[in-house]
């Protein structure tokens, strides 16, 4: 999807979060046939939740809130500060 800005063109694409959740949804969907019949709903529900987030992130990216790839160079947007720093990796030291 492209948007004209001045003499340049801004290309919008799916961000990494959208791709990550889409891959997760596909993985869960692939587990459905392998799952026992009584637990297939778990795989479907997981795939559905992941797909939901993939769609939301994709819409956010395509409608202007997400990552953009400038064809001509524009100043990069400032990275917004997040209130919650990333959690530490699990497990303790050996």
């Amino acid at each position: 999807m492209q948007t004209r800005i001045g003499r340049g063109v801004l290309r919008r694409r799916m961000g990494r979060q959208a791709l990550f959740f889409m891959a997760t949804a596909l993985l869960c969907a692939a587990l459905v046939p392998a799952a026992p019949a009584s637990f297939r709903w778990v795989a479907w529900a997981s795939a559905g939740l992941a797909a939901w987030w993939a769609v939301l992130f994709t819409l956010e990216d395509l409608l202007g809130g997400g990552p953009q790839e400038p064809v001509t160079s524009y100043p990069a947007p400032a990275e917004s500060e997040t209130p919650f720093p990333p959690p530490p990796p699990p497990g303790g030291p050996r």
């Binding site: 997760t24 993985l27 869960c28 587990l31 392998a34 799952a35 026992p36 637990f39 778990v42 795989a43 997981s46 992941a50």
Partner: peptide
């Protein structure tokens, strides 16, 4: 199946 599903 749940080896993969539980962390997901």
């Amino acid at each position: 199946v749940f080896i993969v599903l539980s962390p997901i």
